[in-house]
Simulated scan of single mutants.
Amino acid sequence: MTRYGEVIGQPVAQSKSPAIHSHWLARAGIDAEYRYQTVIEPLLKPYLDERRDDPNWCGCNITMPLKMSAPAYCDRLDPGAEKLDAVNLVVREGADLVGYNTDGEGFLEPLRDRLSERHLFRMARVMGTGGAARAICSALADKGFVLVVAGRDPGRANRMIEALGLPGDHHTAAIAQFAGPTDFPFDEREGCCDLVVNATPLGMRGHDPLPFDISHAPPGSIFYDIVTDPIDTPFLEAARAAGFETIDGRAMLLGQAAVSFEKMFGQAPDRRADQALLESLV
Rank of each mutant, 00 (worst) to 15 (best):
K83M: 10
D49Q: 15
T246E: 01
V91R: 01
N101I: 09
R134L: 04
R3M: 15
D54N: 13
A86K: 13
K67H: 00
I222E: 05
R134W: 07
R152Q: 06
D54A: 07
A174D: 07
V227T: 00
G243A: 13
L84C: 02
A26F: 08
P65T: 07
A81W: 01
S116N: 11
L120C: 03
L202A: 05
R3N: 15
H23K: 08
F235N: 09
P110H: 05
P42S: 11
A257F: 01
S22L: 10
D187E: 10
A238W: 09
I8N: 09
L195Q: 09
A173N: 08
L48K: 09
D187M: 01
E245P: 00
R122L: 04
D274N: 08
L66N: 01
H23G: 08
P71N: 05
L97R: 02
F261L: 08
M160V: 14
M264G: 02
G99E: 11
D103F: 00
F186H: 12
G80E: 10
A273L: 10
Q275K: 14
T63N: 00
T172C: 15
G191M: 05
C74R: 04
G128C: 07
E279H: 09
L254F: 13
D225R: 00
V90M: 12
V7N: 13
F107G: 03
P154I: 05
A176S: 15
S116A: 15
H170W: 11
M123V: 12
M204A: 10
A173Q: 06
Y224Q: 12
R51A: 08
L84P: 01
V146D: 14
S260H: 02
T172E: 05
A141H: 06
P219Q: 12
P71G: 00
A150R: 11
N88S: 00
P18Y: 01
R125V: 12
R250T: 06
L77S: 07
R27D: 04
T228F: 14
